[in-house]
């Protein structure tokens, strides 16, 4: 084992791992974080805590992750390279680890244009691959990115994202290979709606044996309504929502669409768990955390292993 991460331990058991997501609030009170976390407790192995997602200012991922630790949950501390330079990121990694946060996700982040501070400077001192390299160097070599030795280095279990649906498609396996080369331990994918395309990507991944070098978690987001399906299809960059899925959501009465979304989600997990190389599920129930227990139970992912 490289780390003390519970997520790493679950992967090591060979069982499918499950992560959830907690988006911190756009305000200074801890209640929202605690309430969301409480809904997930016992149903997931770890909880991603997003970092200014969609480029909107929110409570810091670090602070919200500490609340989760206090509740004996295991945060996946997300970090985007958009908002901070390598000094700030490494100091947050030291700080997070000192609070018992030992699992993180390295991302470049949505462009500032999509958020409420479009006028802000993009930092991007490092990119996501270089952040992976940095965190691995801190852990395995005990050195900061700048080369100096770290006294008591942080041992982070290192995650990153992959989007099999972005273009150019043929590059996406190579992009994963590059993250593996940089030292990533686990991957959480973009929300999967086009399962055929995901399977094609996974075939390429397995052909190169990458699934044996990195744990791949399939990303799942239940849709609340036909409107959300249409929005995801048209407005969210890098999202691939097939027409038949939008039609299926539109085909049921409005008051039953949420349940249909959950059904689709469970069916997706049932199909995806059979795909070679899938090591778990990352369930991103955005502002719908209360549905995670139902999804996890119905998909046969409950109870969670005790590690």
């Amino acid at each position: 084992m490289k780390t003390e991460s519970v997520l790493e331990k679950v992967f090591a058991t060979g069982e499918l791992a499950v992560t959830g997501e907690c988006g911190p609030p756009r305000g200074a009170l801890p209640d929202v974080v605690k309430n969301k976390a409480a809904m997930l407790k016992g149903y997931v192995d770890a909880v991603n805590v997003t970092d200014n997602q969609t480029a909107m200012v929110r409570m810091s991922s670090f602070a919200a992750s500490v609340f989760l630790r206090q509740m004996d949950l295991h945060p996946v501390f997300q970090m985007v390279t958009r908002d901070r330079n390598r000094l700030a990121m490494q100091s947050d990694i030291l700080g997070a680890y000192s609070h018992g946060i030992n699992t993180m996700l390295c991302l470049s982040g949505d462009h500032t244009q999509f958020g409420d501070h479009a006028m802000a400077a993009n930092v991007h001192d490092l990119d996501s691959v270089q952040l992976i390299q940095t965190v691995r160097g801190m852990r395995d070599e005990g050195r900061f990115q700048g080369g100096a030795e770290i006294k008591n280095p942080p041992k982070m279990f290192i995650g990153a994202a992959a989007n099999p649906f972005a273009d150019p498609f043929e590059l996406r396996v190579a992009r994963l290979a590059k993250k593996v080369k940089a030292g990533v331990d686990f991957i959480q994918t973009q929300c999967i709606y086009n399962i055929d395309k995901f399977e094609t990507w996974m075939e390429g991944v397995c052909k190169r044996g990458l699934h044996e070098e990195v744990y791949i978690m399939a990303g799942i987001t239940p849709m609340k309504s036909a409107g959300m399906a249409r929005y995801m299809k048209k407005k969210v960059p890098g999202m691939d929502v097939p027409d038949e899925l939008v039609k299926r959501m539109e085909g049921v009465p409005k008051e039953k669409q949420a349940q249909e979304g959950i059904d689709i989600c469970v069916e997706s997990i049932e199909r995806l768990r059979e795909v070679e190389g899938v090591s778990g599920f990352h369930i991103m129930a955005i502002e719908w955390e209360e549905k995670v227990p139902e999804i996890v139970q119905r998909a046969g992912l409950y109870p969670r292993p005790q590690v």
Partner: peptide, 11 residues
């Protein structure tokens, strides 16, 4: 995003 190691997921 001046990424030096490949396209982000938004391409």
């Amino acid at each position: 995003k001046r990424l030096m190691n490949g396209p982000c997921g938004g391409s």
